[in-house]
Amino acid sequence: MNHHVNDYDADHESVYDGLLGGDASQWAFGTDFEDPLAGMDTSVPAGLDAAELADLCLRLGDDALVYSHRLAEWCSNAPDLEEDIALANIALDLLGQARLLLARAAAASPGLVPVLPEGSPVPVEDRLAFFRDDHDFRNVRFVEPENGDFAVTITRLLLFATHRLAVLERLRAHPDAVLAAIAAKGVKEVAYHRDYGGRWFVTLAQGTDESRRRLLAALETVFPLYDELLATGVADVRDEVEVVVDQVLAVAGVERPDVKPIGGARHTEALSRMLAEMQVVARAHPLGVW
């Protein structure tokens, strides 16, 4: 009996052999990681508390990281190719913001970073992303739940991006120049995310009976954690956010749902399940070289 796996030419043991060696930069994962803040002055400015700055960056970074991972779950599952690519693009922008913010948090307060075995090549922002347990994550619960259908996803995206845009607009004036620069860059990106969410929100509300029915159901699903997003966000931007949300609801011809905010735990079970999947490979190989 021939075993196909053994049926190879001894000179060509793997179809990838010819790709190995040579210039490492052709590899998507490279042979090493670049520091996303390479060469930047990451000293904490006088008058700022390093631990507070790091915590602020961690909260913003964890929101972006967790939500990015959720949105990325739409990859290959979205209603059509354009929305698949749009949601993946939004997830990528947020992942980039998360990376910069976690790197900034680590530079401001190195004690936050989980310790790995000697010789581990994992960079600081990845240590924070992959080697912290659920209870150490600083994100709001709003970004944790599973995606639900497209209407739930769009409703959550609209509220998240509207809030994050307002926060980043404020942080452009933050006394830490690194955070201010990350925020200024993020504003340009998240403005696209918010308007994408807003346009789809209106489209679903005014589309078919079925799309409107689903959107109304989505409001009941998403709004119970909205109050926490506004209340525990990193800056008090409630008024700016509400003006925009009311504007979208008015154009969509949709009433704000009458739902009670969910109090209680700092995280939901959904976060633990997500992190289990997101972190398992990195944790199995803390010394792994890609």
Binding site: D23, G39, L92, G96, R99, G186
Partner: peptide, 24 residues
């Protein structure tokens, strides 16, 4: 030689390639 680059978008996945290309 010190070259300075900036990402187009925060999540630009090409930064490492750009760096390696410049160095090479």
């Amino acid at each position: 030689v010190v070259a300075t680059i900036t990402p187009t978008y925060s999540g630009c996945p090409a930064m490492a390639s750009m760096r390696d290309d410049l160095v090479r």
